[in-house]
Simulated scan of single mutants.
Amino acid sequence: MYSANQSKISKVRALADGNWDRVFSAYSQLSTAVNKAPRQVPCPTTTGSKSSSTKFRLFKDWVQTGGAYHNDEGAMPDGIEVVAWLERCSKSQAMDSIVSILGGDIRSVTNTHIQQKQQQMQTVREQYCSEEEKIERMNRVRAIAQTSIPAANAPEVHAYLKSRGLKGDFSKLPHSLRYHNRLRYPVSFREEGDKRDPWYSALIGTFKDKNGNNTSLHRTFLKNGKKAPESKTKLLMSPPWDIRGGYIDMDKPVIFIGEDNEPMALIGYCEGIETALAIREGTGIPMRPHYSSSLLKLASGIVVGDIPKSRTIITLWGDKDRSEDGQNTVKELAERLSKEGYIVQVHIPEMDIPANAKSVDWLDVYVQEGADGFPVELDESVAVNVF
C-alpha cells in the first residue's frame, strides 16, 4: 500500500512540478493569487465574505512546486495539497484531478522521468532565493536570536506555559527555546485597516533544516503571559533556503541499553512546541517538534552516532483531527521511516474531539488526564529532566 501510494505521488509530481501554472489555470478562484503572486490576496475559497480578507498567497516558486500559504490553514508545500484544499477532497482525488487537467497518463511516467524531475526540483529548492536575499534573511534571524534570552529565564514564558496547562520546572526548559521582549508582528496577517500596536513579546524556537543547520525562528507572539490577541500567533520567519525535513530544535535523542545489552536511541516527533513540552512532561521522552502537520509529514530520520537505524526508535505523536489530517500525517510518516529502517511507534489521542473543536492533541490529553493519559513512560534513569 505504501509503495503504491508513494508511486502515485511521485508520478503526479513528475507531471505537475514545473507545470502548476497549467494546473491552477483550471481554477478560476486562484486567478487573483496567480496574477499577484507571491503577494497576499483574499482567500480563494471565501471570496465575497468578510473572512475573505487578504490571507492567502502562492509561494515564490509556485510554478515549480505549487506551494501556497493560508493564514488560517498554514503552509501547503505542494500543489497536491492546494488542490485537495480547494476541492475539499482527499489527496488521491486531488491527484486524479491534476492528471486530468494536464491530460497525462501516470502509467507512462517512468522511474527515469521521476528521478530527473526530482533532481530538477532539488535545484529549484537550492535556488530558493538569491544570495543577497539569503544573507538578508539570515541577518534578520541572527539579530533576533542574539538579542533574545533563554526562555528558562523568562517569567512571561513561564506564565504562558502555565496558562496552557503545563506543570514542569520551567527553569529547566531547553536552551534552544528563547524569549524576546519586543518583536514586530507581521501586520499583513491582520484585517485591512487594523491600526493596533504591532509590538509583542515572543517565545522563540530555533528552526533547523534537515542537516541540522540553524535556518529560521519560530515565534509564538505573547502579551502579558498569554497568546497575543491576533488570529495567527505562531509564525515562522522567512527561511533563507528549503526547510523541508527540518524541525524546531528541542532535545537530543536519549541513548539507553537495550535488553540485549546493546545501545539504542529514542526520540519523539510531533507538531507544536507546547505539545512537545506536554509529551516530555507526561512521558520523559525527548522531543522534536516540527511546527505544522505539513512539515511533520516531511520530517527526516535521525543519525545517532554509530547506532544503526534498526536500533533507533522514533515515536510519532499525532494530533487527532476531524479532517484526519493529523492521523494521516503520522501514519504516512511512520510508513516512510519504517521503510528507511527505523523502529517507529505511532500514538494518537483516544480522547474524543469536543463538539466545538476541530481536533485534540497531546497537550489536551495532558491537561485533562495528566501523565496517566499517555501510553508510555520512560524510566527516570533515561527520561528528560523536566521537574
Rank of each mutant, 00 (worst) to 15 (best):
Y2R: 01
Y2N: 08
N5Q: 09
S7A: 08
K8H: 06
K8T: 12
I9E: 02
L15M: 10
A16K: 01
D17I: 05
V23M: 00
A26Q: 04
Q29K: 02
T32V: 14
A33F: 04
V34M: 14
V34D: 01
N35W: 14
K36M: 08
Q40D: 00
Q40Y: 15
Q40S: 04
T45I: 10
K50Q: 09
G67V: 11
Y69S: 04
N71Y: 15
N71S: 15
E73V: 15
E73A: 10
G74R: 07
G79R: 07
I80S: 02
E81M: 14
E87I: 14
E87Y: 13
R88D: 15
R88V: 11
K91H: 15
K91R: 15
S92K: 13
S92F: 14
A94K: 15
D96V: 14
V99Q: 07
I101R: 05
D105R: 14
T110E: 01
T110N: 05
Q120F: 14
Q127G: 11
E133I: 14
I135H: 13
I135W: 09
M138L: 09
N139P: 01
P150N: 13
A154W: 02
A154G: 06
L166E: 05
G168N: 03
S171M: 07
L177V: 10
R178V: 12
Y179V: 01
R190G: 06
E191A: 10
G193S: 08
G193W: 03
A202N: 06
L203D: 05
G212N: 02
L217T: 01
L222A: 13
K223N: 05
K223W: 12
K223S: 07
K226V: 05
S231K: 14
S231I: 15
L235T: 13
L235C: 15
L235M: 15
P240R: 04
I243G: 02
R244H: 12
G246T: 02
Y247E: 02
D251C: 06
K252M: 03
K252C: 01
V254I: 12
D260I: 09
N261P: 00
P263C: 07
M264L: 10
G268C: 06
C270G: 03
C270R: 00
E271K: 03
G272Y: 04
I273W: 00
A276Q: 01
L277P: 06
I285K: 03
Y291A: 01
S292M: 07
L295T: 12
K297A: 15
A299C: 14
S300M: 04
I302W: 13
V303C: 06
I307T: 07
R311Q: 09
I313Q: 00
L316R: 04
G318A: 13
D325L: 10
G326N: 06
N328S: 10
L333K: 04
L337I: 12
L337N: 14
L337E: 06
Y342C: 08
Q345K: 12
H347G: 00
I348S: 00
I348M: 01
P349G: 05
M351H: 03
D352S: 13
A355G: 03
N356L: 09
K358N: 13
D361V: 02
W362T: 02
L363E: 08
V365A: 10
V365R: 04
Y366L: 06
A371P: 00
F374V: 00
V376K: 01
E377V: 10
D379T: 02
E380S: 15
V384C: 07
